[in-house]
């Protein structure tokens, strides 16, 4: 199996005046193609800092990071933009959709920055991605006309639209209720079953049960890296939940 993510002794510190915050204190692991990894840890343990570096949104202070075989270290800003555009789908806790913009237009945003995709193909792929996340009925709704779960699905569609090698999600279910979280997790499991590599940051241990592997951070170091051999099915858990009255 091919290594999608390969980090070695990754460090990140923030200098704030006199003080230096060591958010990541030397982390190493590899993630192979097709894995579904959750990253857990208490607040402030460095999860977001790490995921931002994986997403090429931030740069490590030291250490090595290669995505899909490409070492990121000395790449130019433009080359990094291309990697974000072609290899990464990033999902934020706060959705980060463009306001007053339809679901389709939000979902196709990454393709607008890829000049090899024609405008017809762009629209087609955005609709395809929105269909995959179950929003084929809401293509022309704007974020304010969608529920939180639906907005996060648009964000997931946006992360899928460029067919990335890895999907990175930072507390993608953090703002959602349990049922909606499970729906989103079922969707991630589906994507993973179809071969997508997923790295998912979360607080909640029950969410971690849906992945194959869990990495636990504490104060910027890995304290546990375990394979989960009893993966729960999110759609099964959903079916077992008592029906809510709408």
């Amino acid at each position: 199996m091919k290594n999608i993510i390969d980090i070695k002794d990754l460090k990140r510190h923030f200098v704030m005046g006199e003080e230096t915050v060591h958010a990541l204190k030397g982390i190493s692991y590899t993630i192979e193609e097709g894995e579904f990894v959750t990253i857990m840890g208490s607040s402030g343990s460095g999860k977001s800092t790490m995921l931002n570096i994986l997403g090429c949104l931030d740069q490590p202070s030291s250490g090595r990071y290669a995505i899909d075989g490409i070492a990121v270290k000395d790449l130019s800003r433009n080359a990094l933009a291309e990697i974000r555009n072609e290899k990464i789908g990033f999902i934020f806790q706060a959705y980060n959709l463009l306001p007053r913009t339809t679901a389709v237009e939000n979902a196709e945003l990454p393709l607008l920055y890829n000049s090899s995709v024609s405008s017809a193909e762009r629209r087609e792929r955005a609709i395809e991605a929105l269909t995959k996340v179950g929003l084929s009925e809401r293509l022309y709704h704007t974020p304010s006309q969608l529920s939180g779960g639906q907005q996060q699905r648009v964000a997931i569609a946006r992360a899928l639209v460029n067919d990335p090698v890895v999907i990175l999600a930072d507390e993608a279910t953090g703002n959602l209720d349990t049922r909606t979280s499970y729906e989103i997790m079922a969707l991630f499991q589906e994507l993973n079953a179809a071969g997508k590599t997923i790295v998912f940051v979360t607080h909640e241990p029950d969410i971690a049960m849906f992945s194959n592997r869990t990495i636990v951070l504490k104060d910027g170091t890995i304290i546990k890296d375990s394979v989960n051999d009893k993966v729960l099915s999110a759609s099964g858990a959903l079916a077992a939940m008592p029906k809510e009255e709408d």
Binding site: L57, A81, R84, N85, E86, F90, N96, L98, L109, Y113
Partner: peptide, 16 residues
């Protein structure tokens, strides 16, 4: 600025 951040995050280049 946040919109700019998002555009950069999904692969927009500075020049774009």
């Amino acid at each position: 600025t946040r919109e700019i951040g998002l555009r950069l995050a999904v692969g927009g280049k500075g020049s774009d």
